[in-house]
Amino acid sequence: MAEKSEAGCARPTGGLVGEPDQTQEREVPQPTKETKRMIQVGKAAPDFVAPAYHQGRFTSVKLSDQLGKWVALCCYPGDFTFV
C-alpha cells in the first residue's frame, strides 16, 4: 500500500502510468489515427495509479505495486447505487 496522501481541497485524480499528465497540457486530438487501447485476456493489464480511500485514510494505489499478488479489480457506476 502506498503512503498516506494529504487531503487537500483539490479533487485528487489518477491516471495511466506512462501517459502524459493531461491536467498540464491537453493534446490536440488526431482525427486520422485511432489509438484506442483494448484490453485482452492473456495480455498485460494497463498500469495505472489512482487515489483511494482505505480504512479511514486517503492513499493511492498503483497496479504495478501489486505484482506478486492476485488482483480483483472491480468497477461500478457510482457510490450509493443500489446493486
Binding site: 484490453i39 501489486q66 488482483v71 480483483a72 479489480l73 468497477c75 457506476p77
Partner: peptide
Amino acid sequence: VENRGRFIIDPDGIIQGY
C-alpha cells in the same frame, strides 16, 4: 460513469479474465 466490470489480474500483471 463506469459499467460494472471485474478483472482478474495474476501475479505477473496479466489479465486472466474479465
